[in-house]
Amino acid sequence: MWNSLSIVLIMIGMVFFIAGTLGLLRFPDVYTRLHALTKADNVGLGFLVAGLMLQADSLTTALLLLLIWVLVMLAGAGAGQLVAQAALQRQHPVAKSQDDGRGHD
């Protein structure tokens, strides 16, 4: 029972990671790519950690896993903001929506 729940949670986490990777590769500009990346980091890792916590032998291990998730979220949020800020300062272009792009370019 716990095992299957754990598998399901980890699978959901993996879906987020795959979607995040696809987004990182396919999205048109820095800002949307960041969105894809941080989403995978935060939510995907959250599901992974939740799945792994069910497998942990002790409460300590489970709490350590939780701490890892919190720290990665902190670092991810910080780094994401920094990259976006740097991109803004260097005036990286914001991709227009596709209809717009066809109309003007």
Partner: peptide, 8 residues
């Protein structure tokens, strides 16, 4: 320094 870095 960005306030975000300071908070971190």
């Amino acid at each position: 320094v960005s306030p975000i870095v300071l908070a971190l």
